[in-house]
């Protein structure tokens, strides 16, 4: 089943979720590692190149994901803890918001001088020019802080999923792990 139902995430949502998860971890790890690369490292140029290309890819995936979420039903919350439902909603919104913030700020670092970003060798995503002074520095700060914040949110997200699975013993995690 491709689409979501009231009780289960569909295949599209599930695969996109886990693909995003893998990409977020990978992009964070590569980003964390590449900023301290030695100038003479063979990865000095290639790591940022792939970081940007995969970051852009994740951006397009996320745009699709948000559209898909908007035209689909979402499974209903489990349990009766209204506060928990509300917190979950806020946390999920924060994850989406942080994702977009990280990707947009990353884009602003590399495009501050009018240069575009290469999406592999397929196409160059054009710059919007310098939108505000010290753009590369300010966007860089935001990119870094937001990246650490999303990892903290992801830890919370995983913790919450495991709590549902092991403590509440409900189907929250199972609803996101049906791959066929």
């Amino acid at each position: 089943m491709l689409k979501n139902t009231d009780v289960q995430f569909g295949l599209v949502s599930t695969y996109v979720h886990w693909l995003s998860a893998i990409m977020v971890f990978s992009l964070f790890a590569v980003g964390f590692w590449m900023v301290d690369l030695n100038y003479y490292s063979e990865w000095y140029k290639t790591a940022p190149y792939y970081h940007k290309a995969f970051g852009l890819t994740l951006f397009f995936i996320t745009l699709f994901r948000i559209c898909w979420k908007l035209i689909n039903v979402s499974p209903k919350e489990l349990g009766n803890n209204k506060l928990e439902h509300k917190l979950a909603k806020v946390a999920h919104l924060a994850l989406y918001g942080l994702l977009l913030l990280i990707m947009f700020s990353g884009y602003l670092i590399s495009t501050a001088d009018g240069r575009g970003i290469e999406l592999f060798s397929i196409v160059t995503i054009p710059s919007m020019g310098e939108l505000f002074p010290n753009q590369e520095d300010l966007a860089g700060e935001i990119h870094e802080i937001a990246a650490y914040t999303i990892i903290a949110m992801v830890v919370l997200h995983i913790g919450a999923a495991l709590k549902h699975h092991f403590v509440d013993k409900d189907a929250t995690l199972k609803r996101m792990t049906k791959f066929k």
């Binding site: 670092i109 590399s110 495009t111 501050a112 001088d113 010290n134 753009q135 590369e136 520095d137």
Partner: peptide
């Protein structure tokens, strides 16, 4: 020093 300009925003960010 913040006004360093090598005609490449990423490099200038790195230089700062």
């Amino acid at each position: 020093a913040t006004s360093i300009d090598s005609n490449h925003a990423e490099r200038d960010k790195h230089l700062r």
